[in-house]
Design a binder for these strands. Structure first.
Lengths: 216, 216
DNA sequence: ATTTATATAAATGGATACAATAAGGATTTT
DNA sequence: AAAATCCTTATTGTATCCATTTATATAAAT
C-alpha cells in the first residue's frame, strides 16, 4: 500500500491500458468502477480519473450515467488511424532528418536488427521503437505524443489481425530501405517511402481485419 | 442548481476553456480547485474532472500534488501547432474534396463572406468555421476532433498576437482562391494552397508573437 | 400473450470528510 | 546576521457517503 500518493490514477490507467491493448479486456466490455477499484486496492475515485485518461486517449468510451466500456474495434477507424499516422509521421520524419545524427541512425538500425531476429510477439513493440527512434530528433514534443497515441490505438488492431508473416517480411524490407534514405539525408525519398510504408501497412491489415472482425 | 446531472464537468470545462482561450485567465495562472468549485457552485470533484479534460487538450498543465496552471504560451509550441495543423488539415481536405457537394461549397462561401464583412472580433470564429466546413465531408471523426483541438490551441496565440489587418486581408484572399480550387475539385492545387496558407499564417503570426510575448 | 407500468436493485455522479504533501514563516542555532 | 529546522497553513489526493439515474424484473391491464 506504500504507493506514492498522487499517482494512483496513472498506475491504474497503465494497468487498464495494457489489458485493453493486449486484448485481455475485449472490445465493448463494461468497465465497472467498483470492480476495478477492488482489483487495484483503491476507492472508485482514482479509477474514475484513470478512465477519463483512457477516454481522452480513445481506448475507452464513457456514456453519462451509464459507465465506461472498452472502445469498440471498427475497420473504418483503423483506416482513419493509419491515415493520420501517415500525415503525422511523415511530418515528424521531415523535421527530424536534418537533425538526425549517425549515432541515432545506428540506434535505429540496431532496433531494426532486433526486430528481424525477434518473433511475432516482439514485432509490435520493436516496430514502434524503430519508428520513434527516427522521429524523436525532430524535437516536437506534442507531435511525438500524438504519434505515440495513434500507435497505441493501432496496436489494439494489430493484436487482433495476428500479423501475417509475409507482411512482417515486407515491413522489414521497407524499414531497411527507409534507413538507407535517411542515411543519405534524402528527405523527399525518405518521406515518400514512409508515406507508402504506412499506407501499405494500413491496406494490408485492413483486409485481415475485416475478416477477423466478424466474431464480435 | 437544476443542471442536468453528469455533465457538470463539461460545463465547467467549457467555462474554463473560454476563459483560457480568451485570455481572461493568463498563461501560468494557478487554477485552485476550491475557488473554481465555488465559482461554479459545485464541489471540487467535477472541477477535477474538468481540469483533466483541459489537460488532455493541452490548455492546462497539472503537476502531482501541486495543482493545475494555465499552460504557458511558447513561440516554439505555436510553430509546432501550425506544423501539425498543416499536416492534419491537408489530409482532411484531400479526403473531403471527392465528397464535397456544391451545397457544402456554397455554405463555405457564405461563411467566408460573413468573415470578410465582419471585424477582427469575429475573424477567429469564422475563420475556424470556414476551414471546418471544407473538412467535414471527409467523414473522419477522429481527424476532425484532432483538428478542432489544434485550432483551439492556436486561438490562444491569435488572441495574443491581436491579428494585424493586412494578415487578415491576405487570409481572405487565400480563402477565396482555395474555394475556387475546391469548386474545380482540383485536389492537388487545393491541398498545395492550403499547406501554403497554413504555413504563411504560421510564419506571419510567429513574428508578431515573439514581439508580443515579452510581457510574461 | 403482449405490452406497459411500477418497483427494486445496481451503478454512476457529486458532496463531504479525512489524510498526506508541499510551501511559507517563525524560531533557534551557529 | 544568516542558515537550517520545525511547525503551521493552504491545497491537493483519496475515501466514504448520499442522491439520482438506469436497467431489470415483476405484476397488472388490455
Amino acid at each position: 500500500m506504500s504507493e506514492k500518493r498522487g499517482e494512483q490514477a496513472e498506475r491504474i490507467a497503465a494497468g487498464l491500458r495494457g489489458e485493453i491493448v493486449s486484448g485481455a479486456l475485449a472490445a465493448g466490455s463494461a468497465l465497472r468502477q467498483e470492480k476495478i477499484a477492488e482489483t487495484y486496492g483503491t476507492s472508485r475515485m482514482p479509477v474514475r480519473d484513470a478512465l477519463r485518461f483512457l477516454e481522452a486517449e480513445g481506448l475507452v468510451q464513457m456514456l453519462p450515467n451509464r459507465g465506461a466500456t472498452v472502445a469498440p474495434l471498427d475497420a473504418a477507424e483503423f483506416q482513419e488511424i493509419y491515415e493520420m499516422r501517415g500525415a503525422a509521421e511523415v511530418l515528424a520524419l521531415r523535421l527530424a532528418i536534418p537533425e538526425l545524427t549517425n549515432r541515432q541512425l545506428d540506434r535505429a538500425s540496431e532496433i531494426q536488427m532486433q526486430a528481424e531476429e525477434g518473433d511475432i510477439r516482439t514485432f509490435g513493440a520493436l516496430n514502434k521503437a524503430f519508428h520513434m527512434a527516427l522521429y524523436e530528433p525532430c524535437g516536437r514534443p506534442r507531435l511525438l505524443t500524438h504519434i505515440a497515441g495513434l500507435n497505441e490505438l493501432a496496436d489494439r488492431y494489430l493484436r487482433v489481425a495476428a500479423i501475417e508473416l509475409d507482411y512482417v517480411a515486407q515491413s522489414h524490407h521497407e524499414h531497411r530501405a527507409l534507413l538507407e534514405a535517411c542515411r543519405r539525408r534524402d528527405e523527399a525519398q525518405a518521406c515518400g517511402m514512409l508515406a507508402q510504408h504506412i499506407e501499405d501497412a494500413g491496406k494490408a491489415l485492413h483486409g485481415l481485419l475485416s475478416a477477423q472482425m466478424r466474431g464480435l
